[in-house]
Design a protein around this nucleic acid. Structure first.
Lengths: 112, 112
DNA sequence: CAATAATACTATGCAATGCTAGGTATTATG
DNA sequence: CATAATACCTAGCATTGCATAGTATTATTG
């Protein structure tokens, strides 16, 4: 893959990561950051900590996610769990619809 | 649509516009800027001049597009036509493949 | 022929993002 | 105690889409 398309990949990821993270959180119900990295990487969407934590913080600040530290005495480092708020769920619905629309438009353009 | 999802839409367009423009140029063979705006707008992807011209210039500078002024005596303002270079065609192939991959990953995530 | 409208393209500066690189804190292991 | 593993966080950079404003050329109108 050329440097040009590498840069393009960086750009088209903008927003797409939000969509995928919200989608995964809805599927799982409750997720913490490190787990998200592993699951997304396994799904073919590798990302680094420096990418996901600022992103989770932003979405929490925006009211799309609710964050709670694990209260149960879990072994190991404490974990911060994220879940969709009602607003986050609504936003995800809009995003999914828009993403589908983008896919349809691209197909239409390809077919001329 | 909320201000939040509006901003998200702006972000996810990054890169996606490149893909759509290259796709449309491949379909049409030869296109000029103003025509691109009309066709994309009609396809459901409205954009402004301030968006598309810098973008066409960048892709031309990157060697993805070749630009030629119309030599035939066309009525009205002279038009600059854009067409895919061989490198642009190769880049578009990679982008399309990556976009399909993104769509598949998103579907997988949604289904859990 | 001058004035206006329409078409095509260009330049500048902003806000928002993903990434790199580095750092911190807690627990488990030998 | 020292090391590794886990989990989280932050600063700064490059890139982008967009709004805004402007230039240049041609057609139309009076």
């Amino acid at each position: 893959m050329s440097a040009l398309t590498d840069n393009w990949k960086t750009q088209i990821r903008k927003g797409y990561l939000d969509l995928c993270i919200l989608t995964l959180i809805r599927s799982r119900g409750r997720v913490y950051g490190f787990d998200l990295i592993e699951q997304l990487t396994r799904a073919g969407l590798p990302l680094k900590e420096g990418t996901i934590y600022p992103l989770l913080n932003r979405m929490t600040a925006d009211g799309l996610l609710g964050a709670t530290w694990d209260t149960e005495n879990v072994k190991g480092h404490p974990r911060k769990f994220y879940a969709l708020t009602r607003e986050g769920s609504r936003a995800l619905d809009e995003m999914s619809e828009e993403f589908d629309r983008m896919v349809r438009i691209h197909q239409k353009l390809a077919k001329g």
